[in-house]
C-alpha cells in the first residue's frame, strides 16, 4: 500500500530530538512526492506504531507540524497535509538548501573551482539517476 511505504523503514539517530526527525521525515516524503498536498496522514497512534516510537513523541511531532502549518486538522477528521502551495514549495527549498549547505561545507575543505564542481555534480547526479532506473527495471522484471 502506498500509505505504508516509506513509513516502516525509518531509522532514527539518537542525537536529534526524535519528534523533529519525524517532522523532517514528513518533509522528505513531501519533497520526493510520496506525500501529496492535501493527503490524509495516519493518526498519531498509527504513526507511532508504524515508526516504532513512543505515542508521546508522535503527538509532539504532530503538534510541531501543526505549528509549522504543515498539517491541518479540522475538528474530528483525520489530519491532512496542507494545501498551501507556498508552504510546500518553501519546504522543498528548505530541504534542498539544507542538503546543499551540508555538501558545500564538506566540499569546501577541498580547493576546487566552482565550475568544475558543478560539472562533477551534474555528472554524478545523472549517473545516480541511471543506476536507480536500472534497479527499478530489474525490480520490474523480477
Amino acid at each position: 500500500m502506498k500509505m505504508n511505504e516509506g513509513w516502516t523503514d525509518v531509522t532514527f539517530n539518537g542525537r536529534d530530538p526524535v519528534y523533529l526527525q519525524v517532522v523532517r521525515h514528513f518533509k522528505e516524503q513531501l519533497a520526493t512526492g510520496r506525500l501529496e498536498a492535501g493527503q490524509i496522514i495516519p493518526s498519531r497512534r498509527e504513526l507511532g506504531a508504524m515508526l516504532k516510537i513512543n505515542p508521546n513523541t508522535a503527538q509532539k511531532a504532530y503538534k510541531e507540524m501543526e505549528e509549522q502549518q504543515l498539517i491541518v486538522t479540522e475538528g474530528n477528521s483525520p489530519s491532512r497535509i496542507t494545501l498551501d502551495d507556498n508552504l510546500l514549495r518553501s519546504i522543498r527549498s528548505e530541504l534542498i538548501s539544507e542538503a546543499v549547505d551540508a555538501f558545500v561545507v564538506s566540499v569546501r575543505k577541498i580547493d576546487v573551482p566552482v565550475e568544475e564542481l558543478l560539472d562533477i555534480v551534474k555528472q554524478k547526479y545523472l549517473e545516480r539517476n541511471e543506476i536507480e532506473r536500472q534497479v527499478q527495471e530489474g525490480g520490474d522484471h523480477a
Binding site: 539517530n13 539518537g14 542525537r15 536529534d16 530530538p17 526524535v18 513523541t57 509532539k60
Partner: peptide, 15 residues
Amino acid sequence: QCEQIRSEEGKSIVD
C-alpha cells in the same frame, strides 16, 4: 527528559 537533552545539548542517551 530525553528529547530535552537532544534539543538542548545534542546528546543521545548513550552519550
